[in-house]
Amino acid sequence: MGFVLGRLGQTVLVLLVAAFVSFSLFRYVGDPVNNMVGQTASLADREAMRAALGLDDPFVIQFFRFVGHALQGDFGISYRYGQPVSALIAERFPATLELALISMLIATGLGVPLGVWTALHRGHWLSQLLLAASLIGVALPTFLIGIALILTFSVWLGWLPSFGRGQVVSFGWWSTGLLSWSGIRALVLPSVTLGVFQLALIMRLARAEMLEVMRADFIRFARARGLRPRAIEYRHALRNTLVPVVTMIGLQFGNVFAFSIIVETVFQWPGLGLLVIQAIQFADVPLLAAYLVLIALCFALINLAVDLLYVAIDPRVKAAGLVGRAA
């Protein structure tokens, strides 16, 4: 429990820093009052608006007001859309989360087994081929993969849609494309595009870690104990490989979620990425600030989940956590 509490404390600190940075954005992109009142507004009108928005107050008070509102889910009104930022984000959030989850599922589900396989069959021609392919996967820019996939599967073959989310089913504020055939079809190309780089990365890391572990003394000793190759490879080597691989999968999930902007642009995916790229063009600061805080929250939660997974996988982490609490 001490371990979990410590991590939670760190998480709160990280979120506060992220909120501070987001909030500071407001102060460096000019006077929001200029955007909100018309050009013909008098100086008195401006002052009134300024006072109404609380912009007269000291910086610290403004910051804590921002944090207080944020805690209640209130990030203000979008300059561009004139709607509450939280509603805009809530509307777009499911699309991006779904895309990120599916692409990481593909990347992890294929990347870890392929990495392990290529490590165990080093000389095999297929292993060499996969390794070369993974290099291409790491090197190719995402937008190029997206365009190539659209060209092949949408334009030439006409199998899959090239843009949009298809038909979505709503549950309250949550909307999902996973329950309709057109929604699933629409998800294929964007999630593969987003997942290719991650797949290659995870495969290469899993392979490198597996090779490293297979050289370890305890694997040699397991051989000397006469254990079956399957037990050595999967019960001993794979588990020891997973610790660093899980870390990277967690961090990459954060990346995929936060920076799906390119894929969402290429596929006109109605998610956060698309919302944010438009917000950047319009200098829609409240929206950007809320987005930054949300991304920080996601990373913090993912890191927390990864830390907890460590405890489940590696008994030494638990011991270190307990020692940390005692000290």
Partner: peptide, 15 residues
């Protein structure tokens, strides 16, 4: 059977 040099690394740390 075998006994190797380093007992610190001969055993699987996760089991």
């Amino acid at each position: 059977a075998a006994v190797f040099q380093d007992p610190l690394t001969s055993l699987d740390p996760l089991m």
